[in-house]
């Protein structure tokens, strides 16, 4: 900061001098000494330094170092082991290895979760945000639907585990619905999905609602005068107008669903069997229980690449459709 302050005087002087120069010369030359220009650049650059230090330490180095780790046998206690080349990655494509088997199951589970959750995470909020837009007390309803999003995953899984508990849970004691919500399939997935929808739907409602307020009201008025039904307005105005935001919400929802961890970890511990164990949980176990950091990092990187490819395809599809 200090350098930004002090060197600016030099900058000002330069401006002042070049100003004087233009007074005396008919053609402005805008000649600044090289030294002043460098100092000016450095002064402007210095504002980014605090952020860049954080960026290098906690974004750039982890990526580069992670790549290095993923090419080794790596124990968290003893550190770097043997260089293994790409074998940490290659084993993931071979389901007869333990890590490859885990990766495949984790990937399958998380894809299943994503495929079920994203349509609801996008579909319900599109309808609800439109209802809020049409109805009275917009601010109040938006706040209520948004409310669960501010709670921690711990709080929401605790509440829902209690509501869903087979013996003495709220659902079974209030409504007499006794089902093995957390211990048998398909109920375990339904529970995790429903809890996630309840938790993060409001986030999407807020985004989509903001999108609705950007649609020119004349569009709605014109179609109302033409006698279009609310349903018709929804499908021929709301959905097409919100297309960009819907695609953003879809991509964000897919990324978030792919990163599923705590709901499974806290509600079902990945069970029954490992049927609700997402990829992140296999990575966590590989790193912190099996102590295989190299192989775990390779899994995380491959998962990251898969997420990027899927997001990229989703963006392209959304863009090309428009």
């Amino acid at each position: 900061m200090h350098s930004g302050c002090t060197q600016h005087w030099g900058d000002n002087m330069a401006e002042y001098n070049s100003g004087l120069a233009t007074l005396h010369q008919p053609i402005p030359t805008r000649k600044r000494s090289f030294k002043v220009a460098v100092l000016d650049n450095l002064g402007s650059f210095s504002f980014t330094v605090p952020y860049l230090v954080a960026f290098i330490l906690f974004a750039a180095i982890p990526v580069i170092f992670g790549l290095y780790v993923s090419l080794h046998d790596w124990n968290p206690v003893t550190g770097a082991g043997q260089f293994t080349g790409l074998s940490n990655y290659l084993q993931l494509f071979n389901s007869s290895t333990l890590a490859g088997h885990d990766f495949l199951i984790g990937l399958r589970n998380v894809v299943l979760f994503t495929v079920i959750s994203v349509p609801f995470l996008v579909g319900i909020p599109t309808v609800v945000s439109y209802l809020i837009y049409c109805g009275p007390w917009k601010g109040l309803f938006r706040a209520i639907f948004f409310f669960p999003s501010v709670l921690s995953v711990t709080a929401i899984t605790t509440v829902w585990s209690w509501i869903l508990a087979t013996q003495g849970g709220l659902l079974s004691s209030l409504f007499g619905i006794q089902l093995p919500w957390l211990t048998q399939q398909p109920f375990a997935w339904i529970s995790i999905d429903a809890t996630t929808e309840w938790w993060s739907m409001g986030f999407n409602i807020v985004i989509l609602y903001a999108g609705l307020t950007q649609i020119p009201t004349s569009l709605f008025e014109a179609s109302r005068i033409d006698g279009a039904s609310p349903l018709r307005i929804y499908f021929s105005i709301v959905i097409p107008q919100l297309r960009n935001i819907i695609s953003v919400v879809t991509v964000l929802g897919t990324i978030a669903s792919f990163n599923l961890f705590a709901q499974s970890y806290l509600m079902t511990s990945g069970g029954p069997g490992s049927s609700t164990e997402p990829l992140t949980m296999f990575i966590y176990n590989q790193a912190f229980n099996e102590m295989k950091m190299g192989s775990a990092t390779a899994m995380a990187f491959l998962m990251g690449i898969i997420i990027m490819i899927i997001s990229f395809i989703q963006y392209r599809v959304a863009r090309d459709r428009g």
Binding site: I61, P62, G304
Partner: peptide, 26 residues
């Protein structure tokens, strides 16, 4: 600098988690 920073938005947190853990551990 701006494009490098913005493209880092695409890095999934899971990918940096373990190397960051090792970084802090060392």
């Amino acid at each position: 600098i701006f494009y490098v920073i913005v493209s880092s938005l695409m890095i999934p947190p899971i990918a940096t988690l373990i190397p960051m853990y090792l970084e802090f551990s060392s």
